[in-house]
Design a protein around this nucleic acid. Structure first.
Lengths: 241, 241
DNA sequence: CGCGGGGTTGAGAACCGTCAAAAGTAGTGG
DNA sequence: CCACTACTTTTGACGGTTCTCAACCCCGCG
């Protein structure tokens, strides 16, 4: 769901650094008021319309963004011209992954969005002064890494319907975290976006949605609203790899 | 290639935080002597034989590891019993990705390895005291995230031979970074490991290797040594998605 | 009301997965 | 040092699922 990136290029890396501390419940580690103010101080709020391009892959990377409101997509153009979606971005997500000073992905708004811009020239000194704030970023990147691994597993599946099931469960979880725990899951992105995210074709996604409907697992009330009828069966389908 | 993870569960996350600073060359940000000593002070060196299991998914996560020497694999068992490989781990890689206090993946040595164990109970206070050291970890996780995204793109391909070509280019790059820039690329892992990493079957990997040999792109002098005969064509094949 | 992009549906082909068997390899012990 | 065994890898034939290509439909927008 996330995808963090920095400009620095540290030699080969980390596999999985578990960071101890949280209790069994693992409460979301939100920013303290003090930290929030520090970030707001260096940042600037901006709005963008749906379909607006925030930046393109290869652009000079001097800013990190925080999603205040709305949904975005982060994608990459392959040499062939095919576009692959690496992640969707939701509220509280941070984006701006870069390498050698250039953004790795392009980011485009799916819905109207409000962003918080954090200039790196100010953010980096700040987090180097405030290790606890930096630790929040470390946690965010770690979460992004977990999500990227999960997505890789998702893509590894060979059946289209299973991939779509996993995707819907992911969207549902996302929605539950930000709104409530309804069975109505909004899908602001287009079918093509979903297809790129799942490494499928549009047609396969279309057939898979029909498959889920025919099995009575999900009802698509509109193109952008899925109603999960049988969560446990869908879960089972999503897990059956 | 990497996969970082922390125990903390920060609410939805970061997409891509580019971190400014490095010059155009983007020199690897290695540890300072002081930092190295601080880490060695809290850590302990351990050896393990090939095939040794460092930890299993679900184990209580209280340690982060740094690879001093050798190669390891990080994998996950799916509900069906199928094993998927999330990454191979090489020198300087850090691993121990966890969530809610438990490791997410299992890690097993591919070759004999030397590791540096960092107990989280000591590491976390240390990096919270030393923001510059923490920043190195942040860079590592970021690099791991980039690699995970790259792998997701790789998996998204549908042709086995293209996936294998990408894999060989990755291994070659890895080898160049740690040793020299020969065309001989060692492949310490088994074909099954490669298959799990690429989300293919053993058989498909076997057929793909034969395909690369027949096209005269790569010679497999032994099962664990690939000689790249035509790097530019291989590169072209790897890029042709 | 007409236009255009996104979405759906259909038929055919290519590719990989599955199953099964043979060949090669590594590690063990005599 | 060699032989045995168990495992990994390779090879083959077959079936299934997705991709490709092409046409049609639907919805939103001007």
């Amino acid at each position: 769901m996330l995808s963090v990136s920095f400009m620095y290029d540290l030699t080969p890396g980390i596999d999985s650094v578990p960071f101890l501390h949280s209790g069994p419940a693992a409460e979301p580690t939100l920013l303290t008021d003090y930290q929030r103010k520090a970030l707001e101080h260096i940042g600037e709020r901006v709005h963008a319309r749906a379909h607006a391009v925030i930046y393109n892959a290869g652009d000079h990377a001097d800013t990190v963004f925080v999603v205040i409101e709305g949904v975005l997509k982060s994608y990459r153009k392959l040499p062939s011209g095919k576009r692959v979606l690496s992640t969707f971005l939701f509220r509280h997500d941070i984006f701006g992954l870069a390498e050698r000073g250039k953004y790795l992905n392009s980011v485009q708004a799916v819905t109207p969005v409000t962003l918080h811009e954090l200039p790196l020239a100010e953010l980096i000194p700040l987090i180097k002064r405030d290790p606890h704030l930096q630790f929040k970023f470390l946690m965010k990147v770690t979460q992004a890494l977990r999500d990227a691994q999960r997505r890789a597993i998702l893509i590894g599946r060979h059946d289209a319907i299973g991939r779509l099931a996993m995707f819907l469960m992911m969207m549902r979880r996302q929605h539950r975290l930000t709104v409530g725990h309804d069975y109505d899951v909004p899908l602001p992105m287009t079918r093509s976006d979903i297809a790129s995210f799942l490494s499928l074709t549009c047609e396969s996604v279309s057939r898979a949605t029909r498959g889920l409907q025919q099995r009575g697992l999900v009802a698509f009330d509109s193109r952008h609203l899925a109603r999960i009828l049988d969560p446990s069966s869908l879960e089972k389908l999503a897990a059956a790899i």
